[in-house]
Design a binder for these strands. Structure first.
Lengths: 334, 334
DNA sequence: TACAAAACCGGAAACGTTTGCATAAAGCCG
DNA sequence: CGGCTTTATGCAAACGTTTCCGGTTTTGTA
């Protein structure tokens, strides 16, 4: 039950392999009649070109690689869907890898992808150190970073985290809160750093000082950490006016801890998230948050990558403006 | 900046290409000394074997294909993570495709995958018709179906949906509910059919009759449909004792509609979901549901697929026992 | 009608591996 | 020390395409 090759098709159609190849490429130099015959032979044999052989002749493989920390995270799974769809439309397939926030795994994945002759790479790097190491491997392979970027030389598409955090913090200030706590995220996370900077800037404008609590870089389960530390916070009694959570997932964990401790949101403390994952919109949650437009990010990233693959080599940077989504977890300070 | 080939390595190490190939395969018939030399040359040149060429020689590509309806659905994204991880551990990469519940896209994806000489295929088929069509394409390529299966001939791993639904329905009956509504899912969905069958069976045991509301097969946004129809249900005033939702996502939409209509859960109506997606565990949601153990499913699926790839050709069927997760959305009937 | 230009197609090399077969060197036995 | 087995390596074919370079045949033009 071996698969038909181009030679089989050629034999059946009574032409040469070269001709078949040209028909498949829909090149102009063959007669309509021959094309017909060849196409017919193709379907008769159920012929499917062998991608490996194609890749070998030095041309496109039509595969792009994508490495993210974890697709089961709604943020990345949303992006992944958008990416896969746009890529498929353009005739590209995507090879997936989860780095699980592990530098070695991230590098190994990229290495494997390179061996596969991928045409381009999309990566959500876990750290600046890690990204720096990619560069050596990648060479001048088309590549765009998604979500975060730590290099002046790389193309990227990301949300303007500083602006988003700034806008959100201003909103909190506008509601009269002054004791605002920035909660969560790994201290090594660049994204956290940027959001925190936007947050600080907004506070500084009003001359108020902010607090923060961050997770050590090496915590395995950030969710777990968030829950435990929120619990501790609420039990300590030093509950702030408002909490600016690093992410929606973090915010959800904070809610959970609050529930546990009898702290009411938003009556006792306002809570603001970041990401606008789908569950934030549920009535029972109804979390005020900032939308990163991950879907759009994915689409743009693929678009930019394809541009690069097709020859455009300048660096591109797309900064999407995040949007504050006001729901019910933040209210005016009494 | 061309990549180094095996010949370059061979030249640098002063051996033949064949020898290099054998070193890479860590074959026993070469001397330790030569191995050293070759390995050294490899790192010096930053050599990475060309996977296309490897695939061409008729051997393994170490790629498996995975097609699911939509990775942004938490059910599949959880499974995808598990799959990718297990596959990576075994040295396999995974090519991802979303069928978006579209038969043509599903088939096209499989076709592309075949052209890529994948070693095996994991698919969550969208319908029996669709799956029947795969069979012709796939031939005897290793393949295991995940989540659903409609063919006696295919290997598969799935949760025992009938048993899960049955157990859940018995639980509802045990709480004293008699007017129980099975809500949601596409009428064309085999999974829905099976869950509904389990549900009916449990009811039949007690001699009670069940109602059901299903979505037409062609609705685009099932979530939207669920929300609207739940709204309609609650507004009609014909609120049942309990609702058995086809999935957690559906249940979430039902909650949303209930909120909107002032119907209280669980005081006015008990609600039970299915899937145990992560958000079901949040205190604000705290949905009673059935766990499908999607993570475990993914792991087993990869395991079975690898077995097939490595030669074992009998059909395997793994039916995981689902687990009822009791939370707070179902209470005793008043 | 003759000849150049187009149009169409085949031959063969090339892509980077793996592997069966051949071969050379080395070790073993008596 | 001569034949024989082992061990270690090289040669070359094969995998399925694409594409360059020509070679026929047809068409157009004078």
């Amino acid at each position: 039950m071996k698969r038909a090759t181009i030679k089989d098709v050629a034999a059946l159609a009574g032409v040469s392999a070269a001709t078949v190849s040209r028909v498949l490429g829909d090149r102009p130099e063959i007669s309509g009649e021959t094309k017909e015959k060849v196409r017919e032979a193709c379907v008769r044999l159920g012929y499917v070109p062998n991608a490996a052989a194609r890749g070998l002749t030095g041309r496109r493989t039509h595969i792009i690689g994508m490495v993210v920390p974890d697709v089961s995270n709604p943020y990345f799974s949303g992006m992944a869907t958008a990416i896969e769809r746009r890529a498929a439309q353009a005739g590209y397939r995507v090879l997936l890898s989860n780095s699980m926030r592990n530098e070695e795994q991230e590098l190994r994945a990229i290495d494997h992808f390179l061996a596969r002759q991928i045409d381009g790479l999309l990566v959500a790097a876990i750290s600046p150190q890690s990204q720096a190491k990619h560069r050596a491997l990648i060479g001048n392979l088309p590549c765009v970073y998604i979500g975060v970027n730590h290099s002046e030389a790389c193309s990227c598409v990301m949300a303007d985290n500083a602006a988003g955090a700034c806008e959100a913090a201003r909103y909190l200030l506008g509601l009269g809160h002054r004791d605002i706590l920035f909660f969560g995220g790994r201290e090594t996370s660049r994204t956290r750093e940027i959001r925190h900077r936007g947050f600080q800037q907004a506070l500084a404008e009003q001359g108020v000082e902010g607090r923060q609590i961050t997770a050590p870089g090496n915590v395995g389960q950030l969710r777990q950490w968030s829950y435990e530390n929120a619990l501790e916070l609420f039990r300590s009694g030093k509950v702030p006016d408002a909490i600016f959570a690093f992410s929606d997932i973090t915010a959800l964990k904070i809610m959970e801890a609050a529930e546990e401790c009898g702290v009411r949101i938003p009556q006792d403390v306002s809570l603001l998230g970041y990401d606008n994952i789908s569950f934030a919109a549920l009535p029972r949650i109804d979390l005020t948050t900032v939308s990163q437009r991950k879907f759009r990010q994915g689409e743009i990233a693929v678009g930019r990558l394809l541009e690069q693959i097709h020859g455009r080599r300048e660096r591109t940077v797309d900064l999407l403006q995040p949007e504050l989504i006001v729901r019910s977890t933040c209210i005016k300070k009494r």
